Computed example of a mutant assay.
Amino acid sequence: MTRAIIMLGCVLLAGPALAQSAGEKTGVNSMLGVAPTTADFVKEVAISDMFEIESSKLAEQKGNAREQSFAQRMVTDHSKTSAELKQLVTSGKVKAEVPAALDSSHQSKLNKLKDASGKDFSSDYDSYQVSAHKDAVSLFERYAKGGDNADLKDWAGKTLPALQHHLDMAQELDKAPSVGQSSK
């Protein structure tokens, strides 16, 4: 516990830019409700969208009927938000870089989904969707409230209701009985 407090203190004292970035990486910002920097927000949103699209393309092929329907919605909606984010950056309204590839954590999850099938695929996909959408809702809420770029802040606020709906849908998906289980 003492170590955690000392680490938190170091992160907060390391300077605003470092504190934001390190805070996002460690989850400290989320716990404290601190808005991410614009660069962190853009990076996390882009990676999240890429993961949603790629994992949902797999679910369209490998998932059960409920997952396939959910996955089609995720591909459509996250392709749209990805295009909107890129437009904000290319228009010059947002000064940040959009990553072109997944980070190692998301790539590892995607690789696991590629190798899974049946109940294993469903279990992993469903739990990843709940986790990813909880993270996205937190990220968008924090940026919409305290982000430092007005255009991006506005976009985050407008996008948030759809992400909250995705989270509700993912949580229902996660509650559904797996293939081979009877529903009671």
Rank of each mutant, 00 (worst) to 15 (best):
N64R: 05
Q107F: 04
K25A: 10
E44D: 13
K114Q: 14
M31L: 13
D135F: 01
F70H: 14
M50G: 03
A71M: 15
A19V: 01
R66K: 10
T76I: 04
S104W: 11
K93N: 03
V34M: 12
S131D: 08
A116P: 02
V42W: 08
A59R: 05
V94Y: 03
S79N: 11
K86R: 10
S127F: 03
V45S: 06
Y125L: 06
S56A: 13
P36H: 08
K86W: 02
K80F: 12
K43N: 01
Q72M: 13
E67H: 02
V42K: 13
S123G: 05
E52I: 00
K112Q: 15
F140C: 02
K95W: 04
A136Y: 01
K95P: 01
H78G: 14
F51I: 00
L32S: 04
D77Y: 00
V45W: 02
A22H: 08
K86D: 04
T81N: 14
P16A: 07
E24D: 11
D49Q: 10
L113W: 12
L110K: 14
S104L: 14
S123K: 14
V34S: 13
G92H: 08
M31F: 08
Q129G: 07
I53H: 06
S127M: 15
Q20R: 08
G27W: 03
H106K: 12
